[in-house]
Amino acid sequence: MKRQIAVIVEHTGNRILPVTYESLSFAMELGERLGLNLSVLILGNSIEAMAKQLAERTGSHVTGIKGAQLESYNGEAYKGAIVEILEAFDPSYICMPHTATGFDLAPRIAFFLNASCVTSVEKIRVREGNIRFIRSMFNGKLHAEMAPATAKAVLTILPGAWPSLEIHPGSKGSVHIIRTNFSPIASQTLEIKESRKEKLNLGDADVIISAGRGIRKPANLHLLEELAKIFPKSVLGSSKAACDLGWLGYQHQIGITGQTVSPRLYIACGISGAVQHISGMRGSQTIIGINSDPDASIFNAADYGIVEDLETFIPTLLEEFRHFSESS
């Protein structure tokens, strides 16, 4: 039998998360290169409909692991319910999205299976027949090529790095549901609380001016406010770092743990370009980065890069704007 590449599905409220289809797309690509069979694993309590949907869309075999203790994610319960099944399946690779669930679960499984664990994979590279996984370090300033030193590897896939899986024609796939009554002993998930953050709908804005730690002091926020005024429908966004410092409320935060936005124009001011931030704004139509560090990785995402100190650049820009509007 062909060796397997397994994908663990992430879902919430009976809905498969879009990042799962990106991990599936990654697994298809790696599977094709290495001649591995894709198999899909989904854990939960009411998973039948999702399992069927996955089988149809991937044309692969879907194993559902069902139990009352799996109603919502719990690292200990998920690990307990899945490791024996994974030992039997013996996949060479186990993949899942790099989310708070993914990076919680991946090392638990890797430890048990004596597997390597590579997180936040964004590219596959083949060198002299060896598979390497590329991931970012130093807020995206460097790329590292990682190689598993073991027979098996558990990988988490960076959201946004692979396209969503197309519907797979041909085979209809198949579903097999296994029941488990594994109960966690040392930890218990009680509930999922919805975001407590006040709602600020960044999604409606045409233009977002975002502040990062690089604005250096809250007093400089007024520069961004002035800049925002030159655009009709604009709001202030921010990086998590600027929120953590108390400069802006969390309702302004953009990124994986904040809001996902795709305005027509996004201006990142003093933001380094960490993957967790980029994930939340890469869908913007035009991206401008203002950063004093020419190596900042925000420039890899930007359409226009401006290497300047924003404390002097934004005032100059505002001054030029006044000339511009007087003359036009």
Binding site: A110, N114, A115, S116, C117, V118, R127, R132, S136, M137, G140, K141, L142, H143, A144, E145, M146, A147, P148, A149, T150, A153, I287, P294, S297, F299, N300, A301, A302, D303, Y304, G305, I306, V307, E308, T312, F313, T316
Partner: peptide
């Protein structure tokens, strides 16, 4: 368990460019 084989600089993005000149 796993090794870092090598480091590299990310390829500059093909879509973007830097504005130049004075401020």
């Amino acid at each position: 368990r796993e090794e870092l084989v090598s480091l590299s600089y990310p390829e500059p993005s093909s879509k973007g460019f830097f504005l130049d000149g004075t401020q």
